[in-house]
Design a protein around this nucleic acid. Structure first.
Lengths: 351, 351
DNA sequence: CTGAAAGCGCTTACAG
DNA sequence: CTGAAAGCGCTTACAG
């Protein structure tokens, strides 16, 4: 497979490589006649300059990195699996290609090196990172080295870094859910947390607490547990929590996301607790399945597309030298009550 | 951001760039002592050679292209959205990065050029293509130009092309579904097709016909319609078909995939037809929601992961010069009856 | 075993 | 307006 080079185009068009380059890059100092002559040959030959040559002479790669930190097999978490395509789409709309890589974690040096390598080899102009914990040192190192990164779900108020951008979830998600459950009459509410080193989980947890405190609701240890992001850990967390307090059950339980809420459904079914008759269940995300489960899951809808378009656009703005690009943005979600939440039984009996 | 070059490493290690290159590339003719000295500096400096330099001197990019042809907003079709991540994962397992791009279609020259450009610029060593129709001329042009491509759901028996690989679905999917429905007692079966220029849809359609013919079942025009891949077109297709033959309804309806089957659910609900009491419904794919809808959807489970691992591995094998790599593979699926299919009412009344 | 040199395909001051 | 030349960061025959 012999590739055509700018030399071939130059020869065919009867000009020098310099001129070919000027035409390709749309420089102004080329007379129309020359431009047309060169451009015709370029089109005829389907010529596109080798990116390696371009890059070596100082141009960018027009490529956005996308690093997924975590399990690649996310069939259970439908919500996450869309993120990939949304980032590619957002980048494509600005004429960037997306170079994607998956690493299981960042704590092992070899995986962190994976990311260092992609930046260092000059394959990408900037990177999007999904799944990094808020304490990940690489998120300091990369921007310090001069690389522009955009991190999903990451917030560091104290030390801003001009080259580190992020996008975040509503910080009062938990409070909004508690407010709603409170308005239904719930006073005994349980929380199933995610991984608190992730900003959103911490925010949600704190915001649940804020809501509970505001309404003077009891914060009981046995009504708090780890549930994670997937069905299995949430199922186990809910089983353990609920079976330990069968004599004094909460009337509602809030999971860290919809997939975890489905784990709660499973635990409830197994313990003979009906949703929402015996216990109300809330998720977060509004993943496609949320409206299809029985009963339809009450949740807090997240606009993933909006989140990643905001992040990608701000990263590319920064890369292209735009000034005053906001470093982070909190994308507001929407409370979306469905059949899985109802007034607690005692209330309904009374009213 | 000043990057370190092989020159810097050479200087720090007291050798020439040639030797640095030999060490980096693991050539055998380097004494251990030299190797260690250079490698220590490489590690200390977190040095990774610029790919543009490497590529220009004739090395590959270690990158696999991934081209998605179609709607980027696939929130409705959960099944497809996993494909992206699976390809990235499969490539990562073989130490390739994945360069992804989305184009709405291939019939417009500008989008076809998008793909030509990515290959031509030397960004990728080979490419995976999802969503190309079986008649797409670009699928001939690319391998003829010397590019290795792996196409999802593409089959051309007549003219094989050594550089064109593909992965395909079961060719008797439809027949297996018909066999099962027949065994339940169904004799009046309707089909909702997808886009017949896509190999799988054509295969499914032909295989439905084969099954119907085998069992001497009637092939009626009014029991065949276009339903596509998404809820809306399937809903419309089912509405139109069913409302046109209310006096002589089919007892079962087969959709082209699970998402389309959910459109059929919606149409049935609207027409007052109960699933499966009045009509059985079958999907294909076994997407996550299939087991969650009410009633749980009978379907034909596809192992997407297996499909794409087969495709990616064969493409990379071919790229790496392996001999006798199979050009295509048909990945068998599994019939998965659930609550949405049952014997037709007349049978149950009788039996 | 190892260095000096050529070459890969571009872009961009520089000179005219 | 345009060409010749230098330079980007690698790898790889070639010589020694």
């Amino acid at each position: 497979m012999k590739r055509i080079s700018s030399n071939d185009i130059a020869r065919l068009a009867g000009v020098s490589r310099s001129t070919v380059s000027r035409v390709i890059n749309g420089y102004s100092n080329v007379p129309e006649e020359t431009y047309d002559r060169v451009m015709r040959v370029v089109r005829e030959q389907h010529y596109y300059p080798q990116i390696s040559g371009r890059q070596l002479s100082g141009k960018g790669s027009n490529t956005l990195g996308l690093f997924w930190v975590g399990e690649p097999n996310i069939s259970q978490a439908q919500f996450s699996s869309n993120m990939f395509m949304i980032v590619v789409d957002a980048a494509a709309q600005r004429n960037y290609l997306t170079l994607a890589d998956i690493v299981p974690n960042l704590s092992e040096e070899k995986y962190a090196n994976h990311i260092r390598r992609v930046f260092s080899e000059g394959r990408i102009d900037a990177g999007i990172i999904i799944g990094a914990s808020n304490e990940e040192p690489l998120m300091d190192e990369l921007p310090e080295k001069g690389y522009i990164i955009g991190i999903h779900d990451y917030f560091r108020e104290e030390d801003a870094q001009p080259l580190r951008l992020s996008v975040n979830y509503d910080r009062d998600t938990g409070e909004q859910i508690i407010d709603y459950l409170y308005s239904l009459g719930h006073r005994k509410i349980a929380i199933l947390n995610g991984d608190l080193t992730h900003q959103s989980c911490l925010d949600r947890y704190q915001s649940f607490i804020r809501g509970m405190t505001k309404h003077n609701l009891p914060l009981r240890n046995q009504w708090m547990a780890y549930g994670g992001y997937h069905m299995d850990p949430a199922y186990r967390g809910a089983m353990q929590m609920l079976s330990a307090c069968m004599s004094d059950l909460p009337t509602a339980i809030c999971a860290n996301n919809d997939t975890a809420a489905r784990g709660v459904y499973k635990a409830c079914a197994e313990l003979g607790l009906r949703v929402p008759d015996d216990i109300s269940v809330f998720g977060i995300d509004d993943e496609p399945a949320a409206s299809m489960v029985i009963p339809p899951l009450s949740t807090f809808a997240i606009d993933t597309r909006k989140m990643f378009f905001s992040l990608v656009n701000r990263v590319l703005d920064t890369l292209e030298g735009k000034e005053n690009v906001p470093q982070t943005e909190f994308i507001r979600g929407t409370l979306l009550p469905r059949g899985s939440s109802a007034p607690p039984r005692s209330d309904r009996a009374n009213g």
